[in-house]
Amino acid sequence: MSLELAANDGVAPTGAGLASSPLALRGMTVSYGQKPVVFSVDMTIAEGAMTAIIGPNGAGKSTLLKAALGIVSPLAGQVTVFGKPLAAERHRIAYVPQRASVDWDFPTRVIDVVLMGLYRELGLLQRIRGQHRDKAMACLERVGMAGFAERQIGQLSGGQQQRVFLARALAQEADLYLLDEPFAGVDAATEKAIIDVLKSLKDEGKTVVAVHHDLATVAEYFDRVFLVNTRKMAEGTVAEAFSAENLDRTYGGRLATGQIDQLDLVAG
């Protein structure tokens, strides 16, 4: 971890940090039908850090990301990205949706999916040139999938599909990376490839936010946590917020005591 980051560790984002935070939500409420999935959530993401969004199933983790990106329209609440409205800074965000959200029998090749990350750059009519292909191949290289560029996406394993999605996000050359369950159902090799890429992004000063479900790897992978169960339950560095007490509150006693003990947490 770099020195500047270390200096910021353990400190809640300051007033100045809040104004320019890569992603800040204020009073965010989203409901499907009459039931709020996310209720009045404030979230301030620390720049240059890796943040895990944690909570039980159906706690609104993915919805929180989608609301931040404007994919679902909130009932109430505001989003600012690097201190400005979402629309103005959208090009600085890359998004990795859940793997299961698309049809993998779609007629497209791996390289074509990565080229989708260049959509903003290409616009409607610009031809795809060598430079675009080179960039897409470099992104595939980074996730260890360069050898699969010409494959139809349906021929990939789950982990490989996830890496292609990550490569597409890399092609967007963003400053803020939002990932929805990037480690769900992937093999060990993929998990390692993904976390290596995410850590290298952090080393480049990028900000990473991921919905994460594996409590056992939180401390190893992430700097900060955001605990949510419809409402915000806790927020802070792993050392201060990833405590047994906060987990117990977030999961409402659904975690067995043994599970929490195994996490080797700091005293709540």
């Binding site: 989608k66 990106l69 404007g70 994919i71 629309a87 959208r90 090009h91 965000i93 998004y95 949706p97 959200s101 698309v102 049809d103 779609f106 497209t108 999916v113 989708m116 959509y119 903003r120 597409r168 967007q172 939002l178």
Partner: peptide, 15 residues
């Protein structure tokens, strides 16, 4: 094509 394959990603990209 983008929307047909991945509407969520499209929306996140500003489409």
């Amino acid at each position: 094509g983008l929307v047909a394959f991945d509407p969520e990603f499209s929306a996140a990209s500003g489409v």
